[in-house]
Nucleic acid binder design. Structure first.
Length: 515
DNA sequence: TTTTGAGTTGTTCGA
DNA sequence: GTCGAACAACTCAAA
């Protein structure tokens, strides 16, 4: 790698780069994605871990290590984030804690240390940077409005202290404005975005950042920070341990190994929640315990229909990130403004029934039990329950989005809001409003033997397969025989789908006519 | 500027 | 049971 003097190319020297005026679309600050573009040298830097809990192939950590002498590492349990969670039960806090342990071990084995803080990150980072006497803070960039605002403030406050702030692309292949239409505008339709994404992809973008090769540059610390206990953070244990979710890089690697055995069948098996068809890597993507470059590289190199379909899902992830960045209102408002006029029914009791798995539709209730008991829900089921809430019950997609936000281990604002708006037909590239999932048909098609339903709804164990998807169609006598009387052991359907479908079509029609 | 082709994941109805 | 059409035109992106 060519060594460049700090003076070289000072016009685009990242240390002096401004954060950009908030709200002003203009030209985004340049990002350093180039392995050879590291020009600025520092004596001491601080690397701030966030949703990138790995020391291998970590772009920001690599840049920090290559940029100078000693690198301190910190993880902040950000009270601004933790206080927004519903305490005291949140499996994600446990996932993070468990993933920090091996990360810290790896840093220690290389002679470094992971500084731990439980504080407001936006004030703690400048404070820590100053007390350590570093010249720069490195981190991997985030794409959500709230984290963007936090990072702008950190950048500003560090600037006042004369400390540089470098936010590096790490969690996506292409960020923000890297894939644009020929007119230079962001895509809002997935397929042309995907085509442009694939066209732009080259080995360069899949190359790993060899951060692990430079850990000898980690700064030594006299004092070792203890990991906070769950209770110190204001949380109590959940059933997280029983779930046996692999954590840290090792958990991600194990999960990936299993997936690679069946990735070529992904296209054919991914829609069946009773089958191990999907990757189960979403939580690792969320917390960065695996590198997206590694995943995309594996999928791209595989050349099977299964791998291609899975790569599409990874591209969807980038797509949602860039949509949120370019259309930040879409996290809270309908992407298509005319749909703000929808008169949602928003019946609280029906919403509670949906949350608590009491809708009387087995596939919906089984899915919601999976979510409530594990923090995970199969992708096909996410679509089915989202369609049911927004179309059958006519509950505002934001209610469902917030509920998922509170429960999903892999929750990510960009993908979650995008997915809900897709299901509600209010989003960019959403499904047509008349495409309304039939919960019984979907159940019959994707859980034909009811294996998934029976796993989560033992009260339906003895209902014959044929009737499992719509148990109310069983005669009262047969219900008795199966030990499951509708209205007693299992609720009657909260709504008649055929009628609800007509109701939804009418409602969406009023908006279209008003537009 | 105009034209053209295409658009994640579905359902229902009637022949 | 199988198949095509209707659902609704509309907007995006590229040529």
């Amino acid at each position: 790698m060519a060594k460049a003097s700090p003076a070289q190319g000072s016009a685009r020297q990242p240390a002096r780069r401004s954060g950009g005026a908030p709200g002003k679309p203009g030209k985004p600050a340049a990002r350093i994605n180039d392995l050879d573009a590291i020009r600025v040298k520092y004596d001491k830097t601080l690397f701030w871990f966030r949703r990138d809990l790995r020391h291998v192939d970590n772009a920001g950590l690599y840049r920090a290590l290559k940029s100078g002498g000693q690198v301190y590492c910190v993880f902040v349990f950000d009270t601004e984030i933790l206080d927004a969670l519903s305490k005291p039960h949140d499996r994600r806090v446990e996932f993070i804690l468990e993933s920090l342990k091996p990360l810290r071990t790896a840093l220690r084995q290389a002679g470094g240390e992971l500084i731990m803080r439980h504080a407001r990150a936006r004030t703690e980072i400048p404070k820590l940077a100053q007390s350590l006497g570093v010249q720069a803070v490195f981190t991997n960039e985030d794409y959500e409005p709230v984290t963007n605002a936090r990072d702008r403030q950190v950048r500003h406050d560090l600037d006042l202290l004369g400390i540089a702030f470098h936010a590096v692309k790490d969690q996506v292949i292409f960020a923000r404005d890297e894939v644009l239409t020929q007119a230079g505008k962001p895509f809002s339709v997935f397929t042309p975005y995907k085509n442009a994404w694939l066209k732009k992809l080259g080995p360069f973008y899949l190359r790993p950042y060899p951060s692990a090769d430079y850990l000898h540059k980690l700064a030594r610390l006299e004092k070792q920070d203890e990991l906070p206990a769950l209770e110190d953070l204001g949380f109590a244990p959940t059933n997280f341990r029983e779930l046996k979710i692999g954590t840290g890089m090792e958990g991600a690697a194990d999960t990936l190994d299993v997936f690679l055995d069946h990735i070529d069948r992904y296209h054919d098996t991914r829609d069946y929640p009773a089958v191990r068809g999907v990757s189960y890597l979403s939580v690792h993507n969320r917390f960065g315990t695996v590198s997206i470059r590694k995943l995309a590289g594996l999928a791209h190199g595989r050349r099977s229909s299964g791998a291609d379909t899975w790569l599409s899902e990874l591209i969807w992830r980038d797509f949602h990130f860039q949509i949120l960045h370019n259309f930040p209102h879409s996290a809270e408002f309908c992407f298509k403004p005319e749909y703000e006029g929808l008169q949602w029914r928003n019946n609280e009791a029906e919403f509670r029934a949906w949350c608590e798995a009491r809708t009387g539709y087995p596939i919906i209730d089984a899915a919601m039990r999976q979510l409530n008991s594990s923090g995970y829900m199969h992708n096909r089921l996410r679509m089915i329950v989202a369609s049911f809430l927004t179309k059958d019950l006519l509950v505002d997609w934001r209610w469902g989005e917030r509920y998922f936000a509170a429960r999903l281990n892999d929750y990510d604002l960009a993908a979650n809001a995008g997915g809900w708006q897709w299901a509600a037909s209010t989003g960019c590239d959403a499904q047509p409003y008349f495409r309304i999932f039939n919960p019984v048909t979907q159940s019959e098609r994707f859980d034909p033997q009811g294996k998934f339903i029976r796993r989560y709804l033992p009260e339906l164990a003895r209902i014959p397969d044929k009737f499992l998807h719509a148990p109310w169609t069983l005669s009262p006598l047969e219900q008795q025989a199966a030990g499951c009387v509708i209205g007693r052991e299992y609720p009657a359907p909260i709504v008649d789908h055929a009628g609800a479908r007509e109701r939804a079509l009418d409602l969406f029609k009023t908006v279209r006519e008003a537009a």
